[in-house]
């Protein structure tokens, strides 16, 4: 049995937790109390779970607008995330960021931001700092296939490769930018080869199979950490819900018929559950136990958010400049 397999229960828990948190957010979103755009990663949980299992607390992660999974998998506080989406003072940004801007410095989650590819150079900068200061620290950045259309991605990969920085570029290729499929945005060529042309070590895998992700990410993170070799991972996955918001949107017709159904069958959580049943001898009680833990934690997070006082608007002018 390979190393990541031993951590399968933990990764299952991580994925289940992300899924249930987002389901709870989606359920309550229509109440109009979470008044910010919310991009759910439902269906894509395996990427964050499989990458984060190899990260240390001091390793740093940057993410994008669809950040809930990345943040939670890295150890970001659930209470602070939910409160942030509710715009409360107990939120990780005290209500200044909302769903698209998560941060937990203690957990090594240095921030997420929605400008496409905007955080990619930040991760490379963190990796540069790590190398300059001779720290044993890896930087990871999650981004989508759309970033290959942004110049800054290439500018940044060029530098990471030139200076051999300990960074792992994780591309979640879910095939769409908002409603626009990849084929309408990019020529028919493997994006992996572009990363290879930048002389990064590259690999691609099944982003809906947490074991596959974990095996590939493990190698990549180790090579970045020990050999200062920048890494690129392309993980194929699929967004189940609308680009932004809590609902399904298959009725809009921008996805080919049957595509969503096919990917739903490849649910990373169900697939892992099957492995746990068949190879780890998990019983229904084992699954129920985890559902219970997660549900309890989620309930507490919503309770925390509810009780967290709203921030005072008089403080909105603070922190424009660091003192």
């Amino acid at each position: 049995m390979t190393q990541p397999m031993q951590s399968l229960p933990e990764m299952y828990h991580t994925m289940l937790r992300i899924r249930r948190v987002e389901e709870a957010l989606a359920e309550r979103y229509p109440d109009q109390e979470m008044r910010c755009p919310m991009h759910l990663c439902t269906g894509q949980e395996a990427v964050a779970a499989g990458v984060s299992i190899h990260l240390r607390q001091e390793d740093v992660v940057f993410s994008n607008h669809r950040a809930h999974g990345h943040y939670l998998a890295k150890g970001g506080s659930l209470d602070a995330m939910v409160a942030e989406i509710y715009g409360k003072s107990g939120g990780c940004c005290g209500g200044r960021g909302g769903s698209m801007h998560l941060v937990d410095l203690e957990a090594g989650f240095l921030g997420s931001a929605p400008i496409v590819a905007g955080t990619v150079p930040l991760a490379v900068g963190a990796a540069w700092a790590s190398k300059l200061h001779d720290r044993d620290q890896v930087a990871v950045v999650y981004f989508g296939d759309g970033c290959f259309e942004e110049g800054v991605l290439h500018e940044t990969m060029n530098f990471a490769s030139l200076k051999q920085l300990p960074v792992v570029f994780v591309c979640e290729n879910n095939g769409y930018s908002v409603y626009t499929p990849l084929a309408e945005r990019q020529p028919d060529r493997p994006i992996l080869e572009i990363a290879r042309a930048h002389k990064l070590s590259v690999d691609e895998g099944d982003g809906n199979d947490v074991q596959d992700v974990a095996i590939r990410a493990g190698k990549a993170i180790q090579a970045a950490r020990e050999q200062f070799k920048p890494q690129f991972l392309e993980l194929h996955t699929y967004r189940w819900l609308e680009h932004v918001g809590p609902y399904e949107d298959d009725h809009l017709g921008y996805r080919p018929a049957g595509e969503l159904k096919k990917w739903r069958k490849r649910c990373p959580i169900q697939r892992t559950a099957q492995v746990l049943t068949e190879e780890y001898g998990w019983s229904q009680a084992d699954f129920d136990k985890r559902e219970k833990w997660v549900a309890k934690e989620i309930e507490a997070a919503f309770q925390f958010s509810k009780e967290s006082p709203p921030p005072d608007s008089i403080t909105a002018s603070q922190f424009v400049y660091a003192e």
């Binding site: 940057f62 150079p121 930040l122 900068g125 990796a127 930087a139 110049g151 800054v152 500018e155 060029n158």
Partner: peptide, 26 residues
């Protein structure tokens, strides 16, 4: 050369790299 360096012709990307480094002690 680690502290005094030329830069790829990538003003936006390299500004981002410098921002990320600045967040981490540089």
């Amino acid at each position: 050369a680690d502290r005094v360096l030329d830069m790829p012709l990538a003003e936006n990307g390299m500004t981002g790299v410098c921002i990320g480094a600045a967040m981490c002690g540089v």
